[in-house]
Design a protein around this nucleic acid. Structure first.
Length: 297
DNA sequence: TTAGGGTTACAG
DNA sequence: CTGTAACCCTAA
């Protein structure tokens, strides 16, 4: 009667996407209760989330129609029919599978990635802060030490040094770090000037407050590295879900790069952020490949 | 609570 | 009429 169809808004889709990355697919109730997303998704039920995620996943796999594959599989005693236009996804070698997932036309929500991107960007910052605080070196730590710490504790992309340099420079510009004789230490009273340029995100609602994932003592919350956490989540996902997640990671990286190109004149840090996202996407891909090679299901 | 099959409403 | 997205039902 009064509810013809409540279509999902881009904000809701983005929140769901972020929720899945954070808590994992299938934890619909958890995502719903997370204050980070409850503000946006308070109109939706856990079942709604599940259904929506299914729809999005199906799209990500390139299946415009919801039938086909399922019917094709069961009517095959001993002969595999490969005349199907759509690729069979279940048991594909390994390398090429991801290659196929990459160019996927991820829904249309790929254009704007509010929370996810933001989180990726904040991540490295906190890693650096954590490294410095954990090392507890009097007078601060130099770049090499910081890099070593992060590389050992977490994950090391190929061009990590360059990335780190840019990020350190950026953090100093923000006043969050102070460099004394090649050593970096955390600035006494940091003034949150993280926002570097306008954030068009019409995101966020009115109920919950704006996510303060960046309080001064926040280092403990995000410290365990989003990357490891996200990759860990992926291991619990089904191959389809992981592929979809990886595809989204790539899409986000591409979007971040596109953003960086626009903002390049303002700060080269944006490029570093984009590279961080790209690096994470690659790491995600690698993890997924490893998964498939092991044939773990 | 969740996964999955099924149904209805809407757009092209 | 057909395909898709939101919604519903039910087993586990």
């Amino acid at each position: 009667m009064g509810a013809p169809k409540q279509k999902w808004t881009p904000e809701e889709e983005a929140a769901l996407k972020s929720g899945v990355i954070k808590h994992g697919a299938g934890k619909w109730r958890t995502i719903l209760k997370d204050p980070e997303f409850s503000g946006v998704l308070y109109l939706r039920s856990n079942v709604d989330l599940k259904d929506k995620w299914r729809n999005m996943s199906v799209m990500a796999n390139g299946w415009g129609s919801r039938d086909k594959a399922r019917l094709a599989v069961k009517r095959t005693p001993s002969i595999l029919k490969q005349e199907d236009g759509a690729m069979a996804l279940t048991v594909v070698p390994s390398d090429e599978e991801i290659a196929d997932a990459k160019p996927i036309a991820v829904p249309s929500t790929t254009v704007q990635i509010p929370t996810s991107t933001k989180r990726s960007i904040v991540r490295l910052d906190n890693l650096i802060m954590e490294a410095i605080t954990s090392l507890k070196e009097p007078g601060g730590s130099n770049k090499t030490t910081i890099a070593a710490y992060i590389e050992e504790q977490y994950w090391a992309p190929p061009d990590f040094k360059r990335l780190l340099s840019a990020k350190l420079k950026y953090l100093m510009a923000c006043g969050r770090l102070i460099k004394v004789k090649r050593r970096y230490r955390i600035a006494p009273a940091l003034s949150f000037s993280d926002r570097r340029r306008n954030h068009p995100m019409p995101f966020l609602e009115g109920r919950q407050r704006v996510s303060p994932r960046f309080d001064r003592n926040d280092f403990h919350i995000l410290t365990k590295s989003q990357i490891d956490l996200e990759l860990a989540k992926m291991r619990t996902m089904t191959p389809q879900e992981a592929a979809a997640a990886a595809a989204r990671a790539v899409a986000e990286a591409e979007a971040a790069i596109a953003e960086a190109e626009e903002a390049a004149r303002e700060a080269e840090v944006a490029e570093a952020d984009a590279e961080a996202a790209q690096a994470f996407a690659e790491a995600a891909m690698k993890t997924l490949k490893g998964r498939n090679n092991q044939k773990v299901v």
